[in-house]
Design a protein around this nucleic acid. Structure first.
Lengths: 204, 204
DNA sequence: CTGTTTCTGTGTTGATCGTTACATAAATCA
DNA sequence: TGATTTATGTAACGATCAACACAGAAACAG
């Protein structure tokens, strides 16, 4: 039913991936339509016909990013049997992924649009929402550990989740500064050193 | 000797501070010359005569920021008698400063220009250099603690400094997401929980 | 006073921004 | 076949970008 008219001559998903990589590397404001059309191999009318606008393309690109690049990291939370291992693997996968040299360093969700502009208000809000979702995912994993008895009942899940999420955000900037996987692992070691204290009986 | 010619009718330092606040709030790319001239209360020829270019103005603004906004935070490293207190006060002052509502949230050095653009290559390099200097300052304080016997001789200063610097960077993003001082203190608590483990005898 | 120097306001430069008319090409439907 | 529908390429839209030419204004030295 949707085969009417002249068919599209480019791979929409492949073009979306190229756009994602460009937004990832240069940010929302730093990426122009000319940059996008060049990387996607299409002309601007095709871009607008397929994706609507630069803003809509960015939103779709971040959605694609979440499913294509983020899953391996966040799946660590559910795979490990204990919350301690879950957090550690989560951060170790973050360190590995953020320092890969065959793709932009750091996280698109964290770095994509940090400065609230008049034109990118919806962009900022969307990324902020995704960051909040990530915080919630960390919090839920910790609450599960409390329910399972791994962590004491008075464990402050929200505080700990905020801490680990913030560490991950910092790792994006660290990675942008050219930090190697080994250097990022130093941060992971520091974060897990905090775990030992937080999960212990001497925590407030 | 420099009183020749028509005198400047605006306060150069006050204009520089306005420019700093604008770059701080909107980032380098997100701030236009029109934004700057409006906030500084001058016309573009006056801006170029006094500061050279947008890039030179940003570099001078970050230098001003480092001396005007950053000193109170980094002075904590030298004021405290122990490294433990020094790091904690450093992070607590960071939490307070980053969440102030009468100025932009987070840090200009951390958030000013994260995406390496063709036009902002020098900007990125300058901010990166300042972040590296901050890391060195943290490292030196820890090395001093080792020399003074507060920390064991095998303490990994570089790893710990990297960890605390990364936490501070993450706090910038957290602050941009609207986190209160209390919320940022949760991250500080997590970071100091790491201290207890790192400085203990059970560290590797 | 005249001449020199430096700043200020108006206006504009060419380039680039995101977006879109318009005509043409390639597919399906009747 | 002809009519309809959708995509493509060329070209351009008004707006904004960073930066500057130019002339007039305000200080100095002589």
């Amino acid at each position: 039913m949707s085969e009417r008219g002249r068919p599209r001559t480019f791979d929409r998903t492949a073009a979306l991936r190229r756009a994602m990589e460009l937004f990832w590397a240069k940010g929302y404001e730093g990426t122009s339509i000319a940059d996008l059309t060049a990387a996607m191999g299409i002309n601007s009318p095709s871009l607008y016909a397929a994706f609507g606008s630069k803003e809509a393309l960015f939103l779709e690109a971040t959605e694609y990013y979440t499913h294509a690049e983020g899953t391996e990291i966040w799946a660590a939370l559910d795979e490990a049997s204990t919350a301690c291992l879950a957090i550690e693997n989560f951060l170790r996968r973050t360190a590995k992924a953020y320092s890969q040299t065959d793709r932009p360093q750091g996280c698109l969700i964290a770095l994509g649009a940090l400065h609230q502009d008049s034109s990118s208000g919806a962009i900022c809000a969307d990324l902020r929402r995704r960051r909040a979702e990530n915080l919630t995912a960390l919090c839920k994993r910790l609450e599960r550990a409390v329910a399972e008895g791994e962590l004491p009942a008075n464990f402050d899940c929200r505080t700990a989740a905020t801490f680990f999420a913030t560490v991950q955000h910092g790792m994006s900037i660290q990675a942008r500064d050219g930090a190697s996987c080994t250097a990022l692992m130093a941060t992971v070691a520091g974060a897990m050193a905090a775990w030992k204290t937080m999960a212990g009986t001497d925590s407030a």
